[in-house]
Amino acid sequence: MELCEGGELLDRILSRGGKYTEEDAKAVMSQVLNVVAFCHLQGIVHRDLKPENFLFTSKDENSELKVIDFGLSDFVKPDERLNDIVGSAYYVAPEVLRRTYTTEADVWSVGVIAYILLCGNRPFWAQTESGIFKAVLKADPSFDEPPWPSLSDEAKDFVKRLLNKDPKKRMTATQALGHPWIKSYKDVRVPLDILMFKLMKGYMRSSSLRKAALRALSKTLAVDELSYLKEQFALLEPNKSGTISFKNVKALNALEYRRMDFDEYCAAAFSVHQLEALDRWEQHACCAYELFEKDGNRAILIEELISELGLGPSVPVHAVLHDWIRHTDGKLSFLGFVKLLHGPSRNLVKPQ
């Protein structure tokens, strides 16, 4: 067992008067995110990330950080979800309180730590545990009080994207390492993203119609989004012809695809939900629908669309017809196109 003589991250925060400068916070957050991204790639959810559970190896200002206390951690498969409420009240994610969560819950806790590092206050506070839980579920963290107005827009965007209450729209730990705020600190090595495997598996199991919709949307991605995808693609070691093979990727090698070029990879490996969380989502969707109309849209039967979206019998057929399929030619409407992009919703809950 390794001896860590530098004390807890919490003690360092308190010794600095409750908050860090942006540059010092970047140094801490890059280390925190590296270890969380590594754990998630191994299928491990820590479930109790907080400043008390990060130790410095020495008293040096630039000391390395280590995460401790894996007593509440659990293994989770890419398609599984956990359902037991564990963790520390101030750092618990909304979806944990709703009893359906996975690795994204750790990222929320990292967001709480980042908020505290930058301003010295907790984003959610109450005098009772039930009050804290209510705040986590309903309240939005404040970015109006000092020092937030004096902090960079990138710092605020970084924290906001970690503290998105919708886990599907929240950044992953790996994506957070690639965020401009962290990258401006130093050249951070970005590891493989566990989310990429989930998205690619969903894409490869999709119908040709949904693949066409995703390809159209991928053509609207901005430079920063494409840059992240290029980094991830390179980690999969494409061959000289610019394609990747999944025979050595355990999470994907059982699937029918064996090779994929970068253009198709972009369609497979980006998150529609995360794109939807951005201010420019409407522009992305409208441009993608125009492309889809030219090359991909076709007449679709109502039964086919219901199957595509994994809809249950409770969905009224006339509502689907009215909103998602055009009466004029039987092709997908803009709303139907957006629904198709999101795909079916199927969650498996891991039993306790």
Rank of each mutant, 00 (worst) to 15 (best):
F197D: 06
F56V: 11
F143M: 12
A173N: 06
V35A: 13
I85A: 08
S245L: 06
D84S: 14
L236M: 14
L72G: 00
D157T: 10
C287K: 14
R298H: 04
S271L: 08
A222Q: 13
T103S: 00
F334N: 01
K219V: 00
A213S: 11
I182A: 10
A126Q: 04
F143K: 08
A268K: 09
V92I: 13
S307H: 15
F337W: 06
G202V: 04
A213P: 07
D263W: 08
V190P: 01
V320A: 10
Q232W: 03
L301R: 11
C4D: 09
S245V: 03
Y203C: 14
R326E: 13
H322L: 12
H179Y: 12
A216K: 04
L305T: 05
N34A: 10
V107K: 01
D74M: 03
E8F: 05
V96E: 01
T220C: 10
R81T: 07
M171A: 09
Y228P: 02
L252Q: 04
P313R: 08
I244A: 07
C266G: 02
R326W: 01
L82A: 00
S271K: 09
E282M: 15
F38V: 01
H322A: 15
R298N: 04
L217K: 07
I132E: 09
S333P: 02
S245Q: 11
A93G: 08
E2K: 08
L82P: 02
P149W: 02
L252I: 03
K134M: 12
S150F: 07
G87V: 05
M260E: 00
K77L: 09
V136K: 14
S88K: 05
K247L: 11
A155T: 03
G87R: 04
G71L: 09
S15N: 13
T174F: 02
A299S: 05
Y91D: 03
N239I: 06
V159H: 03
V76I: 13
Q127S: 15
A254H: 13
V317T: 08
C4E: 06
W108N: 02
N253G: 11
K165H: 15
A135N: 12
F133R: 09
R16V: 02
E303Q: 13
E5Q: 08
A222Y: 07
V110Y: 06
D11V: 02
F56T: 08
H342F: 11
L291M: 14
E2L: 10
P191M: 11
I132C: 13
L195W: 09
G17M: 00
V272R: 02
R16H: 12
V223M: 09
D11C: 11
V36R: 00
G18L: 00
R215C: 14
V35M: 13
A269M: 03
L162S: 11
F124W: 12
V320Q: 11
